[in-house]
Design a protein around this nucleic acid. Structure first.
Lengths: 363, 363
DNA sequence: TCTTGACGCTCAAGCGCTTTAGCGGTTCCC
DNA sequence: GGGAACCGCTAAAGCGCTTGAGCGTCAAGA
């Protein structure tokens, strides 16, 4: 019978040793699958441990040189920005799935900015609180990889492109460039030539990759009226930018949003201005979630498996903690789920009275 | 100068003792504000500690009887259900704000169900991983309070009504009953007499409070056609229920949803069926978020400060950890923000051809 | 003058675990 | 037949911190 009345005191190895009639060391060997005890003793010790509901004290383990069986995860977000966001919860869920198998804990912290995040890493390191960390939202000139290197804290960077300067860190990333290229491909195939990309925070590495790719693709295909507009990821700014670009004399015929939330906000803004989707305007969300199927029309979206993304990252961290080499892993390219918000570009001249500007219409 | 080149080895009290020329005990006294050292020594020790960037090893502290400076938070949710949800991230953010001041860590875990959650508490207790926990989503016949009592693990129940059977636990709760009463009041004042409450999971304590209150209010006001329909909180089920009730011969004129996500999904379903909001149908969301302002029309919503809710809970847990008595704290009653989805009940008979009773298409 | 007692400090034990050294006994091999 | 190698186990030290006991020293009180 594995479960008993829980005692008020935690059972220790000493208790097991006494009941099994062996020394504490023997118990340690037995429970850690180390040689040094007979199979009979090992089995007996195991049985007693289970009866007592014993679990190793992480504190004691940590003190004697083992890890603390905990990994850290910091989310750097201004408190106000913490809104509707399916990505992180899913990511964390994926991480947990992998960590739980090994009984590793996840220490979670929300901070305001990257500087605070660095302070947290330092503290965690000094307090010996984590064995490794998962880093999200890598950015240009990111101080974190260097810091983690310096502290020799095993880490996996989620969403970053491979970084040769810090060979100690593993990287798990999605091929944003490939995805952006395929989106542009789809949209141009539908006849779109004026495309605006409402991007996320401009200093995030993946935002920059998307922006660069969009520009490259535009040049390659000879599209002059294609651009990226960075935002702070807020629904408010997404709506504002949407209104601004749609009021131009020659408004874009397709909008690509860097998040589901922004896409929904943008869709509402477009509706306000009287644009009908997808007849006059195509909308693509980068990130799929229930949200995309809660608005009318349903949003076409780039879908990636965020849960799996998290699992992969966690597995890489485990490999690192097990002494494996740092690696760079690419998760599958997000793929475009075509729903009802994308369609052929409206042919002919721009809309209504907007034909004044003389900038080429492209169709 | 507080910061230096980070050494490869963590500094320990022994290092401080050597550099300050005192014993380890003196260092301990000095750094923990205990009597036993002169002010001069205390200052010197403090200075050295800071120079070295010393931080106490949580493991060692924990081993010698102090707490582990960590609190636990378990979210019991089937992985699939982890969707768009602003509430928990905000709650956690509020919790963090308070914990961070005291340098307490938050150990976070996502599990499938309450049974797993209990297992996690047992493990955390046995591994000596947390000093206390925050419990969310209390339900009827909840095994958790009993378990936490048994383990004497300090805990704060978030969202539960006060529970006399477990006087060791603190409770932080919102007055759902009062809020529901006020919503019903508002709606009846607008002339609504057929109201459907699309509720959340039926075994959650707060769901039951809302349902009970709605029924009581209906009786008190003599409203016959008022009911609650429990769901699993999913947007799919919210939409399905919405369609079902709106296809009735005498459909409700007001819908109250137990979450913002469900309200948005329901709004879309209603639009599909050709109901215009708020002219023919009023919609209220229980939980305000950016989502409510991203759809058309903007949703009227019951707003509470989830961040503050989290802070309050965390503060109560700290009080408990400091040896204070268990308390029951009520946070302010959520208040109804009236936006564009609520209006006077459509007077006169029900709608159009719907008097047939069949499962019509709706539009 | 001698005793108290407070002060400022050091010593050493102990928290629960891992790990190295070592011990008696058997087996192996030349 | 004697040394080496191995097996199954115990003893003890150590991880970084807290804490109660104890020890000089100095000032005040008898």
């Amino acid at each position: 019978m594995p479960t008993r009345r829980s005692p008020a005191r935690r059972p220790t190895m000493k208790d097991i040793a006494r009941r099994a009639g062996v020394s504490e060391s023997a118990v340690s060997f037995a429970l850690n699958d180390r040689p040094g005890v007979s199979e009979a003793t090992r089995a007996r010790v195991r049985r007693v441990a289970e009866q007592l509901g014993w679990r190793p004290s992480t504190a004691a383990r940590a003190l004697s040189g083992e890890g603390v069986a905990t990994v850290g995860f910091v989310l750097a977000r201004p408190a106000a920005t913490l809104g509707v966001d399916s990505f992180f919860l899913q990511l964390v869920s994926g991480i947990q799935g992998v960590l739980a198998e090994r009984h590793l804990g996840l220490l979670f912290q929300v901070v305001e900015d990257v500087a605070d995040e660095c302070a947290v890493y330092r503290r965690w390191w000094a307090e010996h609180r984590v064995d490794g960390v998962l880093v999200v939202d890598p950015r240009a000139d990111d101080p974190r990889p260097g810091l983690l290197d310096e502290l020799s804290l095993p880490a996996v960077v989620i969403g970053g492109a491979p970084d040769e300067r810090h060979p100690g860190l593993s990287t798990v990333w999605a091929d944003d460039a490939g995805a952006m290229a395929s989106v542009v491909g789809e949209l141009t195939a539908l006849g779109h030539r004026r495309i605006v990309h409402i991007a996320g925070l401009p200093d995030l590495a993946h935002t920059q990759r998307r922006i660069r790719t969009l520009r490259a693709e535009a040049e390659r295909r000879g599209l002059a009226e294609v651009e990226s507009v960075p935002t702070d990821y807020s629904d408010a700014e997404a709506a504002a930018v949407t209104r601004r670009v749609l009021r131009r004399p020659a408004p874009p015929t397709a909008l690509v949003y860097d998040s589901d939330v922004m896409a929904v906000a943008g869709l509402a803004a477009a509706a306000e201005l009287g644009f009908s989707v997808p007849a006059e305007l195509s909308v693509v969300a980068w990130e799929d979630s229930a949200l995309c199927r809660m608005v009318a029309p349903w949003l076409s979206a780039l879908s990636r498996d965020s849960v799996e993304f998290g699992s992969t990252a966690a597995r890489e961290l485990l490999a690192l903690l097990d002494g494996g080499p740092a690696r760079t892993v690419r998760v599958p390219v997000p793929r475009l789920i075509e729903r009802d918000s994308t369609g052929p570009a409206r042919s002919g001249p721009p809309r209504r009275e907007d034909a004044n500007g003389g900038t080429g219409t492209g169709a």
